[in-house]
Nucleic acid binder design. Structure first.
Length: 604
DNA sequence: CATTTTTTCCCT
DNA sequence: AGGGAAAAA
């Protein structure tokens, strides 16, 4: 029962941003609409278009003005602007409305994007089986079967009815849990509509990739089931790029390498053939997928791992003075701060790492990080600006910033629960009594001191609930993310491209840019108080990595403990990796991939 | 000059 | 840590 007897749904809100705006202004329901960011440049760029407008050929990415030409009745909603920057808060809040409903009804919900959720229904279906119920076509008002195109509702009913009959008479009842899954999804979608006002579509299948794929087959306001027996037929008509993870360069490479354009054509390739070109992990993943097998679990995570704000400054609008850069640091810092504060209140956690990203007019992107010691707009803005100063090539006497910045972003991540994970770990580990030296340095992550009163309470209650066991992920379905291009024959001479040599990388790297203003106080030299010595392994660990590092030790201990008692039956995973032992796996992968990448000749 | 703004995950 | 791919509205 481990193989793939799960039932997974992918729920996707229909043209979500448009629905959010229409909920606020219902008079636009039923009319062709879209949501655009900004408006001065050709009426803004559309990031969402509803189905009424799509009938006129309006597409995402178009300009508001262009949409008007195609569809004179088209209405453009504009994303809220704060300090001259698009602000997506309204949609994040609406997203939270949706997830409140999903989470209230199901335990295993994974937020896949602002408007998409995976739900693992397997257990709910088992429960449902205990009290049998008689389902009729009326329980499936918006359900379709993948692989069958129906023009009319009567046709749809005929198909679905036949399928329901088949499932009942099927002795093994292999498909019956998909029936129940579709039934549950009809119900949850109705509930979402009732409680949020939003319509959605859904796909129901035995794994995430298939659920995601078939969700797109009937939209909007419909759901589609993909049964095991229909997979071959569906894959014969599924372009490679339609598969999640293969929509970009990876998919192009697969098509080129194996001379295929749809998924079905990949069936004729052996596991070895796929692995030879794609590596052990990717080859295995694809081999199984083509046969309808994919084991990536639905993880129950609702919270963002990072919060960021960024803005493009294209062409003439690029940030070419220190004042502009300073000022936008302030604006972005303000947005990040506001969202971070809200997140702290709601989720009792704090971000520990601030990351500044910027793209220069030379089209080079850099990202640099520094620890967050204190939540404040000015701290974020100052830290960001101090980092950016390092990359300004103009003399400090000038107010010119060069090369000018065409994209600037500030983000925060590495969240740490205010209910400190370290104290939890300590409570459960053997030597409880020496946790004090972990956070002792002044310059490290001492935000705790401000919150002492509330922390005291929390520590008491901790003993009550044991920490959720570390999820040791099984053969995590890997995607194809290992393809890069190296075709920078461009005229842009690769600047100072003297790789930050392997040695003292950070120091040497910055030293190249500190011609003026070497008073970069918050990014200290190598007399590093950013490092803390781990008491468990005696290795120097970056301060902001310490909590994770601690978790690592903790998880390891737990695992040791568990291995004493239970024996792990080696992951039962299907007909996967036969030969190929662990012996040179790494070398093998790298080798084939390198050859693979370098081989690519045509790339204009 | 111009889809833009996010977010996550993988590779090195 | 930092760069980049992929995906979504």
């Amino acid at each position: 029962m481990n193989v793939d007897h799960r039932v997974i749904a992918l729920i996707d809100m229909d043209c979500f941003y448009v629905q959010v705006e229409q909920r606020l202004q219902p008079e636009f329901l039923g009319k062709p609409c879209g949501v655009a960011q900004y408006y001065t440049w050709k009426g803004g760029g559309l990031i969402a278009v509803n189905y009424e407008a799509r009938d006129f050929g309006v597409k995402r990415g178009m300009r508001g003005e262009q949409a008007k030409e195609l569809c004179p009745d088209f209405h453009v909603f504009h994303v809220q602007e704060v300090n001259g920057k698009a602000n997506l808060t309204r949609y994040r809040d609406a997203s939270a409305d949706v997830f409140r409903v999903l989470n209230a009804n199901y335990k295993l919900v994974e937020k896949a994007s602002i408007d998409e959720a995976y739900v693992d229904l397997t257990e709910d279906i088992q429960r449902l089986k205990e009290s049998p119920l008689k389902l009729t076509i009326d329980d499936f008002p918006s359900t379709h079967l993948a692989g069958f195109t129906t023009k009319t509702n009567d046709e749809r009913i005929e198909i679905v009815n036949k399928w329901l009959k088949d499932c009942e008479s099927d002795d093994e009842k292999r498909n019956y849990d998909l029936v129940l899954g579709a039934y549950l999804v009809e119900k949850i979608r109705k509930k979402v509509k009732e409680e949020t006002g939003f319509f959605c579509s859904a796909g129901i299948a035995r794994n995430k990739i298939l659920a995601k794929l078939c969700c797109g087959f009937n939209k909007p306001r419909k759901q589609t089931i993909l049964t095991h027996s229909d997979i071959d037929h569906v894959f014969d008509n599924t372009p490679v790029q339609k598969i999640q993870g293969l929509g970009g360069k990876a998919g192009d490479r697969v098509m080129e390498l194996f001379k295929v354009d749809n998924m079905g054509q990949l069936r004729k390739y052996s596991l070895d053939a796929l692995q030879a070109s794609l590596g052990e992990s990717n080859g295995c993943w694809l081999y199984n997928l083509v046969r309808g097998i994919e084991t990536t679990p639905v993880s129950s995570r609702n919270l963002y791992k990072s919060i960021s704000a960024s803005k493009n400054f294209p062409g003439k609008t690029s940030l070419d003075t220190t004042e502009k850069v300073r000022s936008w640091c302030q604006n972005l810092a303000e947005e990040v701060f506001n969202r971070l504060e809200k997140d702290r209140a709601e989720n009792k956690r704090r971000a520990k790492l601030l990351t500044v990203t910027c793209t220069s007019a030379t089209n080079e992107t850099i990202a640099r990080s520094c620890p967050i010691n204190e939540y404040s707009i000015d701290r974020f803005a100052n830290d960001a600006y101090r980092i950016l100063k390092q990359f300004n090539k103009s003399p400090s006497t000038s107010n010119i910033y060069s090369p000018a910045i065409t994209n600037l972003g500030i983000g925060a991540g590495k969240f740490l629960d205010s209910v400190n994970s370290r104290s939890i770990a300590d409570l459960f580990s053997k030597q409880t009594n020496k946790s004090e030296q972990i956070i002792s340095t002044e310059n490290t992550i001492n935000w705790q001191e401000e919150d002492e009163d509330e922390d005291n309470e929390q520590e008491e209650t901790i003993t009550e609930k044991p920490p959720s066991p570390p999820v040791i992920s099984p053969v995590k379905g890997d995607f194809f993310r290992k393809f890069q291009k190296n075709d920078e024959q461009m005229k842009t001479p690769a600047k100072i491209e003297t790789k930050p040599s392997s040695s003292s990388s950070i120091t040497s790297f910055f030293s190249r840019y500190t011609t003026n203003e070497n008073s970069c106080n918050s990014i200290p030299e190598q007399s590093d108080d950013r490092y803390i010595t781990c008491t468990k392994c005696n290795k120097p660990i970056l301060a902001w990595d310490m909590p994770e590092h601690e978790d690592f030790h903790y998880a390891r201990e737990l695992q040791k403990e568990e291995n004493k008692n239970t024996f792990q039956p080696a992951t039962i995973i299907k007909p996967t990796k036969p030969m190929k032992r662990k012996n040179e796996k790494q070398q093998n992968d790298n080798h084939t991939l390198d050859a693979f990448i370098n081989k690519k000749p045509k790339n204009q």
